[in-house]
Amino acid sequence: MDDQDLSGLVRDALGAGRRVVAVDRLRGGSRKGVYRVRLDGGRTPSVIVYNWAATESFWPGARETDPADPFTPASGLVPFLAARRSLDGLGARVPRVLLTDDTRRRFPADVAVVEDIPGGTLEALFETDPGRAAQSLARLAETVEVMHRHPGDRYGRVDLLERHRPGSEVPCERRVLDRALRDLEEAAGRDGRIAAAEAALRDRLRELADRVDLRRRYGLIHGELGPDHVLVDADRHPVLIDIEGLMYFDVEWEHVFLRLRFGGHYTALARPGLDPRRLDLYALAMRLSLVAGPLRLLDGDFPDRAFLKRIAEHNTGAALALLP
Protein backbone atom coordinates (compact mmCIF):
# COMPACT_ATOMS: atom_id res chain seq x y z
CA MET A 1 0.00 0.00 0.00
CA ASP A 2 1.33 3.48 -0.78
CA ASP A 3 0.96 6.70 1.22
CA GLN A 4 -1.99 7.84 -0.89
CA ASP A 5 -3.93 4.63 -0.17
CA LEU A 6 -3.17 4.86 3.53
CA SER A 7 -3.94 8.59 3.75
CA GLY A 8 -7.37 8.03 2.23
CA LEU A 9 -8.20 5.20 4.62
CA VAL A 10 -7.03 7.17 7.66
CA ARG A 11 -8.98 10.23 6.59
CA ASP A 12 -12.14 8.17 6.23
CA ALA A 13 -11.55 6.47 9.57
CA LEU A 14 -10.56 9.49 11.67
CA GLY A 15 -11.78 12.50 9.72
CA ALA A 16 -10.19 15.13 7.53
CA GLY A 17 -7.10 16.94 8.71
CA ARG A 18 -4.97 13.95 9.75
CA ARG A 19 -1.73 13.61 7.86
CA VAL A 20 0.37 10.47 7.50
CA VAL A 21 3.95 11.14 8.61
CA ALA A 22 5.42 7.62 8.63
CA VAL A 23 4.50 4.05 7.70
CA ASP A 24 6.05 0.84 9.02
CA ARG A 25 5.21 -2.57 7.61
CA LEU A 26 5.12 -4.86 10.62
CA ARG A 27 6.63 -8.35 10.54
CA GLY A 28 4.80 -11.52 11.43
CA GLY A 29 1.76 -11.61 9.16
CA SER A 30 2.01 -14.27 6.44
CA ARG A 31 -1.49 -13.89 4.92
CA LYS A 32 -2.10 -10.13 5.19
CA GLY A 33 -0.14 -6.92 5.21
CA VAL A 34 -0.02 -5.15 8.58
CA TYR A 35 0.99 -1.48 8.58
CA ARG A 36 1.53 0.94 11.45
CA VAL A 37 0.55 4.39 10.20
CA ARG A 38 1.91 7.31 12.25
CA LEU A 39 -0.06 10.55 12.18
CA ASP A 40 0.58 14.17 13.02
CA GLY A 41 -1.36 15.84 15.85
CA GLY A 42 -4.68 14.66 17.25
CA ARG A 43 -5.48 12.25 20.06
CA THR A 44 -4.65 9.18 17.96
CA PRO A 45 -0.91 9.17 17.19
CA SER A 46 -1.05 5.99 15.12
CA VAL A 47 -3.36 3.31 13.73
CA ILE A 48 -2.92 -0.17 12.28
CA VAL A 49 -4.08 -0.99 8.75
CA TYR A 50 -4.79 -4.56 7.66
CA ASN A 51 -4.61 -5.33 3.95
CA TRP A 52 -5.80 -8.77 2.80
CA ALA A 53 -4.67 -8.41 -0.82
CA ALA A 54 -3.46 -11.65 -2.39
CA THR A 55 -0.12 -9.96 -3.08
CA GLU A 56 0.42 -9.57 0.68
CA SER A 57 0.31 -13.33 1.28
CA PHE A 58 3.63 -15.15 1.43
CA TRP A 59 2.03 -18.59 0.98
CA PRO A 60 2.77 -20.10 -2.45
CA GLY A 61 -0.51 -21.39 -3.85
CA ALA A 62 -3.38 -23.06 -2.02
CA ARG A 63 -3.40 -26.51 -0.52
CA GLU A 64 -6.68 -27.07 1.37
CA THR A 65 -9.94 -26.24 -0.38
CA ASP A 66 -12.53 -28.11 1.72
CA PRO A 67 -14.75 -25.38 3.27
CA ALA A 68 -15.67 -27.72 6.14
CA ASP A 69 -12.00 -28.09 7.09
CA PRO A 70 -11.22 -25.58 9.88
CA PHE A 71 -7.57 -25.60 8.81
CA THR A 72 -8.43 -24.14 5.41
CA PRO A 73 -6.59 -20.79 5.42
CA ALA A 74 -8.72 -17.92 6.70
CA SER A 75 -8.20 -14.51 5.17
CA GLY A 76 -10.25 -11.35 4.70
CA LEU A 77 -12.81 -9.23 6.47
CA VAL A 78 -15.49 -11.90 6.84
CA PRO A 79 -13.50 -14.23 9.12
CA PHE A 80 -11.89 -11.27 10.89
CA LEU A 81 -15.18 -9.60 11.79
CA ALA A 82 -16.90 -12.88 12.71
CA ALA A 83 -14.02 -13.76 15.04
CA ARG A 84 -14.03 -10.29 16.52
CA ARG A 85 -17.77 -10.44 17.26
CA SER A 86 -17.39 -13.83 18.96
CA LEU A 87 -14.46 -12.76 21.10
CA ASP A 88 -15.94 -9.39 22.00
CA GLY A 89 -19.16 -11.12 23.04
CA LEU A 90 -17.19 -13.24 25.51
CA GLY A 91 -15.40 -10.23 26.95
CA ALA A 92 -12.05 -10.98 25.29
CA ARG A 93 -10.09 -7.85 24.41
CA VAL A 94 -9.51 -7.35 20.68
CA PRO A 95 -8.40 -4.23 18.77
CA ARG A 96 -11.13 -1.62 18.32
CA VAL A 97 -12.21 -1.33 14.69
CA LEU A 98 -12.20 2.17 13.20
CA LEU A 99 -13.08 1.34 9.59
CA THR A 100 -13.67 -1.70 7.40
CA ASP A 101 -14.18 -1.89 3.65
CA ASP A 102 -14.71 -4.83 1.33
CA THR A 103 -16.36 -2.81 -1.46
CA ARG A 104 -13.08 -2.40 -3.44
CA ARG A 105 -13.95 1.30 -3.90
CA ARG A 106 -11.17 2.62 -1.67
CA PHE A 107 -8.68 -0.16 -2.38
CA PRO A 108 -8.79 -3.35 -4.52
CA ALA A 109 -8.81 -5.71 -1.51
CA ASP A 110 -10.42 -6.12 1.92
CA VAL A 111 -8.98 -3.55 4.32
CA ALA A 112 -9.49 -2.51 7.93
CA VAL A 113 -8.23 0.30 10.14
CA VAL A 114 -7.94 -0.69 13.81
CA GLU A 115 -6.53 0.83 16.97
CA ASP A 116 -2.81 0.60 17.57
CA ILE A 117 -1.97 -1.08 20.89
CA PRO A 118 1.25 0.66 21.99
CA GLY A 119 2.34 -1.78 24.70
CA GLY A 120 3.93 -4.33 22.38
CA THR A 121 3.60 -8.10 22.45
CA LEU A 122 3.44 -10.35 25.47
CA GLU A 123 6.42 -12.19 23.98
CA ALA A 124 8.55 -9.05 24.16
CA LEU A 125 7.24 -8.19 27.63
CA PHE A 126 8.47 -11.51 29.03
CA GLU A 127 11.97 -10.18 28.37
CA THR A 128 11.62 -6.48 29.18
CA ASP A 129 9.16 -6.41 32.11
CA PRO A 130 8.51 -9.85 33.64
CA GLY A 131 6.32 -8.46 36.43
CA ARG A 132 3.96 -6.72 34.04
CA ALA A 133 4.02 -9.76 31.77
CA ALA A 134 2.95 -12.03 34.64
CA GLN A 135 -0.12 -9.87 35.29
CA SER A 136 -1.08 -9.92 31.62
CA LEU A 137 -0.47 -13.65 31.43
CA ALA A 138 -2.81 -14.26 34.37
CA ARG A 139 -5.51 -12.26 32.59
CA LEU A 140 -4.83 -14.15 29.38
CA ALA A 141 -5.35 -17.43 31.26
CA GLU A 142 -8.78 -16.18 32.36
CA THR A 143 -9.65 -15.24 28.77
CA VAL A 144 -8.50 -18.59 27.40
CA GLU A 145 -10.52 -20.44 30.03
CA VAL A 146 -13.69 -18.52 29.09
CA MET A 147 -13.11 -19.28 25.41
CA HIS A 148 -12.40 -22.96 25.92
CA ARG A 149 -15.44 -23.43 28.12
CA HIS A 150 -17.72 -21.75 25.57
CA PRO A 151 -19.38 -24.87 24.11
CA GLY A 152 -20.17 -25.79 20.55
CA ASP A 153 -21.79 -28.94 19.21
CA ARG A 154 -20.16 -28.53 15.79
CA TYR A 155 -16.55 -27.75 15.02
CA GLY A 156 -15.36 -25.31 12.41
CA ARG A 157 -14.34 -21.71 11.85
CA VAL A 158 -16.77 -19.27 13.41
CA ASP A 159 -17.36 -17.33 10.18
CA LEU A 160 -18.49 -20.50 8.40
CA LEU A 161 -20.71 -21.62 11.28
CA GLU A 162 -22.15 -18.12 11.54
CA ARG A 163 -23.19 -18.37 7.88
CA HIS A 164 -24.85 -21.73 8.68
CA ARG A 165 -22.43 -23.71 6.59
CA PRO A 166 -22.92 -27.43 7.28
CA GLY A 167 -20.51 -28.87 9.82
CA SER A 168 -18.14 -31.66 8.94
CA GLU A 169 -19.04 -35.28 9.56
CA VAL A 170 -15.33 -36.08 9.93
CA PRO A 171 -14.37 -36.23 13.65
CA CYS A 172 -11.78 -33.75 14.91
CA GLU A 173 -9.16 -36.39 15.56
CA ARG A 174 -9.58 -37.80 12.05
CA ARG A 175 -9.30 -34.32 10.58
CA VAL A 176 -6.03 -33.81 12.45
CA LEU A 177 -4.73 -37.24 11.41
CA ASP A 178 -5.48 -36.66 7.72
CA ARG A 179 -3.77 -33.28 7.84
CA ALA A 180 -0.76 -34.71 9.67
CA LEU A 181 -0.37 -37.45 7.08
CA ARG A 182 -0.33 -34.84 4.31
CA ASP A 183 2.19 -32.76 6.25
CA LEU A 184 4.34 -35.86 6.77
CA GLU A 185 4.32 -36.69 3.06
CA GLU A 186 5.20 -33.13 2.15
CA ALA A 187 7.93 -32.84 4.78
CA ALA A 188 9.42 -36.18 3.73
CA GLY A 189 9.79 -34.82 0.21
CA ARG A 190 11.83 -31.90 1.51
CA ASP A 191 13.82 -33.25 4.46
CA GLY A 192 15.95 -36.37 4.42
CA ARG A 193 15.59 -37.13 8.14
CA ILE A 194 11.81 -37.06 7.91
CA ALA A 195 11.97 -39.18 4.76
CA ALA A 196 14.08 -41.80 6.55
CA ALA A 197 11.54 -41.99 9.38
CA GLU A 198 8.41 -41.54 7.25
CA ALA A 199 7.06 -45.08 7.72
CA ALA A 200 7.64 -45.00 11.48
CA LEU A 201 6.03 -41.57 11.81
CA ARG A 202 3.03 -42.66 9.72
CA ASP A 203 2.53 -45.75 11.85
CA ARG A 204 2.86 -43.72 15.03
CA LEU A 205 0.25 -41.19 13.89
CA ARG A 206 -2.24 -43.94 13.11
CA GLU A 207 -1.50 -45.74 16.38
CA LEU A 208 -2.12 -42.55 18.38
CA ALA A 209 -5.31 -41.76 16.45
CA ASP A 210 -6.70 -45.24 17.13
CA ARG A 211 -6.46 -44.57 20.87
CA VAL A 212 -8.66 -41.43 20.77
CA ASP A 213 -12.36 -41.74 21.60
CA LEU A 214 -15.05 -39.88 19.67
CA ARG A 215 -16.15 -36.49 21.02
CA ARG A 216 -18.99 -34.20 19.95
CA ARG A 217 -18.50 -31.12 22.16
CA TYR A 218 -15.95 -28.45 21.37
CA GLY A 219 -14.54 -25.22 22.74
CA LEU A 220 -13.68 -21.90 21.12
CA ILE A 221 -9.97 -21.71 20.27
CA HIS A 222 -7.75 -19.10 18.67
CA GLY A 223 -5.75 -21.69 16.74
CA GLU A 224 -2.34 -19.97 16.80
CA LEU A 225 -2.27 -18.37 20.23
CA GLY A 226 1.40 -17.70 20.80
CA PRO A 227 2.74 -14.78 22.88
CA ASP A 228 3.46 -12.94 19.61
CA HIS A 229 -0.29 -12.92 18.91
CA VAL A 230 -1.07 -11.25 22.22
CA LEU A 231 -0.59 -7.49 22.62
CA VAL A 232 -0.67 -5.77 26.00
CA ASP A 233 -2.58 -2.50 26.41
CA ALA A 234 -1.94 0.36 28.83
CA ASP A 235 -4.07 -1.34 31.50
CA ARG A 236 -2.10 -4.59 31.13
CA HIS A 237 -5.00 -6.39 29.49
CA PRO A 238 -4.08 -8.99 26.85
CA VAL A 239 -5.35 -8.10 23.37
CA LEU A 240 -5.77 -10.96 20.88
CA ILE A 241 -4.67 -10.42 17.28
CA ASP A 242 -4.44 -12.58 14.12
CA ILE A 243 -7.85 -13.94 15.01
CA GLU A 244 -9.17 -14.89 11.57
CA GLY A 245 -8.75 -18.61 12.24
CA LEU A 246 -10.93 -18.60 15.39
CA MET A 247 -12.80 -21.91 15.50
CA TYR A 248 -14.69 -24.41 17.59
CA PHE A 249 -12.43 -27.43 18.00
CA ASP A 250 -10.86 -29.76 20.54
CA VAL A 251 -9.25 -27.52 23.15
CA GLU A 252 -6.36 -29.98 23.35
CA TRP A 253 -5.21 -28.69 19.95
CA GLU A 254 -4.86 -25.20 21.43
CA HIS A 255 -3.15 -26.48 24.58
CA VAL A 256 -0.52 -28.30 22.54
CA PHE A 257 0.23 -25.02 20.76
CA LEU A 258 0.18 -23.02 24.01
CA ARG A 259 2.60 -25.44 25.64
CA LEU A 260 4.89 -25.29 22.63
CA ARG A 261 4.90 -21.50 22.26
CA PHE A 262 4.77 -20.36 25.89
CA GLY A 263 7.37 -22.83 27.15
CA GLY A 264 8.04 -22.26 30.84
CA HIS A 265 5.21 -19.74 31.03
CA TYR A 266 2.63 -22.38 30.03
CA THR A 267 2.03 -23.34 33.68
CA ALA A 268 -0.20 -20.27 34.06
CA LEU A 269 -2.35 -21.45 31.13
CA ALA A 270 -2.56 -25.17 31.93
CA ARG A 271 -5.84 -26.70 33.03
CA PRO A 272 -6.87 -30.10 34.40
CA GLY A 273 -9.10 -32.56 32.60
CA LEU A 274 -7.45 -32.56 29.18
CA ASP A 275 -7.50 -35.83 27.25
CA PRO A 276 -3.91 -37.20 27.33
CA ARG A 277 -4.49 -39.34 24.25
CA ARG A 278 -5.59 -36.34 22.22
CA LEU A 279 -2.59 -34.41 23.50
CA ASP A 280 -0.24 -37.17 22.30
CA LEU A 281 -1.75 -37.28 18.80
CA TYR A 282 -1.98 -33.53 18.46
CA ALA A 283 1.58 -32.98 19.69
CA LEU A 284 3.04 -35.10 16.89
CA ALA A 285 0.65 -33.62 14.32
CA MET A 286 1.57 -30.09 15.41
CA ARG A 287 5.28 -30.77 15.09
CA LEU A 288 4.86 -32.12 11.57
CA SER A 289 2.77 -29.09 10.64
CA LEU A 290 5.59 -26.86 11.88
CA VAL A 291 8.02 -28.68 9.64
CA ALA A 292 5.90 -28.76 6.48
CA GLY A 293 4.51 -25.22 6.80
CA PRO A 294 7.83 -23.34 7.04
CA LEU A 295 9.35 -25.48 4.30
CA ARG A 296 6.37 -24.63 2.10
CA LEU A 297 6.80 -20.92 2.85
CA LEU A 298 10.39 -21.17 1.67
CA ASP A 299 9.00 -21.81 -1.84
CA GLY A 300 7.72 -18.23 -1.78
CA ASP A 301 9.37 -14.90 -1.00
CA PHE A 302 9.04 -14.78 2.79
CA PRO A 303 11.75 -12.31 3.86
CA ASP A 304 13.17 -13.97 7.00
CA ARG A 305 14.24 -17.27 5.50
CA ALA A 306 16.71 -18.10 8.27
CA PHE A 307 13.85 -17.87 10.77
CA LEU A 308 11.77 -20.38 8.79
CA LYS A 309 14.70 -22.77 8.54
CA ARG A 310 15.22 -22.61 12.31
CA ILE A 311 11.53 -23.42 12.92
CA ALA A 312 11.64 -26.39 10.53
CA GLU A 313 14.91 -27.65 11.97
CA HIS A 314 13.72 -27.43 15.58
CA ASN A 315 10.42 -29.15 14.90
CA THR A 316 12.03 -31.88 12.83
CA GLY A 317 14.08 -32.87 15.84
CA ALA A 318 11.04 -32.58 18.13
CA ALA A 319 8.89 -34.75 15.84
CA LEU A 320 11.52 -37.48 15.63
CA ALA A 321 11.91 -37.39 19.42
CA LEU A 322 8.23 -38.35 19.75
CA LEU A 323 8.79 -41.73 18.12
CA PRO A 324 8.79 -44.60 20.64
Rank of each mutant, 00 (worst) to 15 (best):
R215T: 13
L258F: 03
E185L: 09
G76H: 01
L320N: 05
R132S: 02
L205N: 05
V144L: 08
I221A: 05
L258Q: 03
G61Y: 11
V146G: 02
V176H: 02
T143W: 00
G226I: 11
M147G: 02
E145G: 09
K309I: 13
A306Y: 10
S168I: 10
E313N: 15
P151M: 12
L320D: 10
L284N: 00
V97P: 07
F249H: 11
R104H: 10
F302E: 10
L258S: 04
D178H: 14
L274C: 12
H148Q: 14
T121W: 05
G189K: 13
F107A: 03
R202P: 00
Q135W: 07
A234S: 08
L295K: 10
E145D: 14
P294C: 15
D116P: 07
L9A: 02
P276T: 12
L220A: 04
G8H: 06
D129G: 03
F80T: 03
D213K: 10
Q4S: 11
T103P: 02
R84V: 03
L240D: 03
A319S: 14
T121R: 04
L77I: 07
D110I: 01
L298F: 14
W52Q: 01
L323Y: 06
T44S: 01
R296T: 15
L240T: 00
R215K: 12
A199Y: 14
G264Y: 06
T100A: 08
E169A: 11
G131T: 06
L290K: 12
R175A: 01
E142Y: 04
G245S: 02
P73C: 13
E244W: 00
R174Y: 04
A180G: 12
F80K: 01
D3R: 02
D12A: 05
D3V: 11
R193C: 06
K32N: 15
A234C: 01
